[in-house]
Write a protein that binds this DNA or RNA. Structure first.
Lengths: 203, 203, 203, 203
DNA sequence: AATGAATGAGCGTTCATTCAT
DNA sequence: GATGAATGAACGCTCATTCAT
């Protein structure tokens, strides 16, 4: 009844996912994770050095991807402002990458965003917000080259919008597991912000 | 160099505020709180019976106030739908009570909303969101009498909007201390949602 | 040099027995017990869920047995009064069960009787004494049918005798390990009380 | 509303008596004692160096007296065996001193006998039993000069009887506060043992 | 003399992590 | 590879005792 190494690793990750869905990084229990994975307490440490590394194995790749995608998005927007590209590609990117990521890894994202306090990802919301702020500031000024002229009030608004976008997405992730529902709500949500942004840029 | 009782109490509350800002109710440490307050472990229990009561002293009064204010708001909106009153009074209420409360107790609210899992306030965000959901559902249908006809998707949207409103306001509060700035951002934020709501109700 | 599980469990029970011999339930220290058992603080909780369960593992089974035996004894005495049976069987029962129990579990009984205040067995001496009181009251009046006519003073005497019987037996057990010695002393002791009882009933 | 020193001392002792009546030495609380005495936590330490000395002030004098009386009793019995004196004086002594002591200081005795485990009086029962054993051994052999010829079994019986006498008295003290009742029960109890002793010495 | 705030060691208990088998 | 017993630090909390006032 020997389980192969990779199988075990996967069942630990699966169990950890469930554990972290309902507990903070600090509150999650390695004992419960190993029990749920069908292995013993000690054995988990042959696969993951410690709690931190198990957590990292779970959310780290997703963290990298989402940061990467947001950076790509920003670059694409830069091209769009420069006229090298139309806005269509940008929207496609959102659909194909970000929303796709949400759909595929919604559990990991939920954990990354809502359960990582106490781990090295504790500041992840803040980092994501900062990234999105730079995107919004570009949007406010129709391109990065003019970003310097933003007022303090503009910067604050950007930060608030970025923050509520992130929090709003987290919220949706926290409450819904069904992929289609998440997609619909994220779209609605993005649309709401899009509307607000248009209004802002035209008034 | 004995410190006066009230000073100590305040420094405990201040230290607890900081501790709970970065840890769950369960993850917060009474030892760290006392250390940060500059007192010993045992002494904290002269001021607060236990962790639960310290937490309650921090967020309890604010919880009572905000629930109360939201209920008042809902009642006022009810009158507004019934034509007994115009929308002006409603907006004044938001300005005078909710925003004021948020301004004065932003840290406590943040904790109440984000760190209370495991305490008796564990369900507070859910309760607040539920309250706001009923307000939004009334708004979707222009009055409580038609609320029954909402689709599941409508209800999910209402829930998401309510959640992001709560989260968004918390976020603004977390990051800004200046009253005027908070007011402006909350107004911008409320306006954004108002816009979204109008669009939704007319399409 | 890993110690087998059952060995550890036994050494915990042995250490607990010693600790509870000289401390109340409340005053006994889990740390001292683990130290005396040669294990660390945390490890004791792998074997016993908490202090209460450790105490219960020590005295619970003995409590059940002794209550059961005393009830049997009383039933047998009832038959004896009714003439259905002679006194011989009764004496055999005392010899075979109660004395045997006391011989085998004298330390546990001592603890059960003298150190359980604060635990769920806090009232055990009282319950045992009460049981024996009913037996003595029957003896005073030569059968349960006349027990109602006892004076307050009689009842107090019965209570005192019952109490000293219980205490006396515990005392003998505490100080002697040799089975024959215990048997002889208990017999002497029972004889003493028997003598007193006869005298009382005939004067 | 200044209370004189001696008054305070007395009210502390009174409060301590009540506390120790219902708690072990270890389980008794200095805080509760000071509160019941109507003084502050710290002030108690101006009157008694620590818990141990307060306990000692309460039971120490009674301990000295009872040991002293038992020694006197033994001396008197010695004279009685030597024919220097009749048994009457001996019985008078029991009435006048021991029982008198019980009547006057029953609370302190109860505490001394039943609540002192953990204090320096923890071994008091054992010491008293040893004393009484020497008296009983003399009685078995009609005088100290023959005590050497006792069998092991005799010594064990003496020890058992001494023990149950002590325990029996403790039990009476524990359950009755009314002086007359205590006196009657102690007399009954002493009579019972007297009867047993007579029987033993004549068979 | 008295106060009562403060101390700090100790309590029962939990849990991530280690290690002999 | 795997086991699960063992470790030890940390937790919330209590309490005898001390000490600045």
């Amino acid at each position: 009844m020997q389980i192969l190494k990779e199988d075990v690793r996967q069942s630990i990750l699966r169990a950890a996912l469930n554990e972290f869905k309902s507990h903070d990084y600090a509150g999650a229990s390695m004992r419960r994770i190993s029990a749920a994975a069908g292995i013993t307490t000690g054995n988990i440490y042959r696969y993951f050095k410690n709690k931190e590394e198990l957590f990292e194995a779970l959310v780290g790749p997703i963290y990298e991807k989402i940061i990467h995608y947001i950076l790509d998005l920003k670059k694409e927007l830069g091209r769009s402002y420069a006229g090298e590209d139309n806005g269509l590609k940008y929207l496609n990117m959102v659909e194909e990458t970000i929303v796709g990521l949400f759909l595929e890894y919604s559990a990991e994202l939920t954990i990354l965003m809502n359960r990582s306090s106490g781990s090295k990802y504790g500041q992840v919301k803040e980092r994501m917000v900062s990234l999105i702020v730079t995107i919004l500031e570009d949007a406010f000024t129709a391109g990065p080259q003019n970003a310097a002229e933003l007022t303090v009030a503009d910067r604050q608004s950007a930060r608030m919008l970025a923050g509520t976008i992130v929090e709003g997405v987290c919220l949706i992730l926290r409450e819904h597991e069904d992929g289609e529902t998440v997609k619909r709500l994220v779209n609605e949500f993005v649309f709401l912000y899009h509307l607000g942004m248009q209004y802002r840029c035209t008034h």
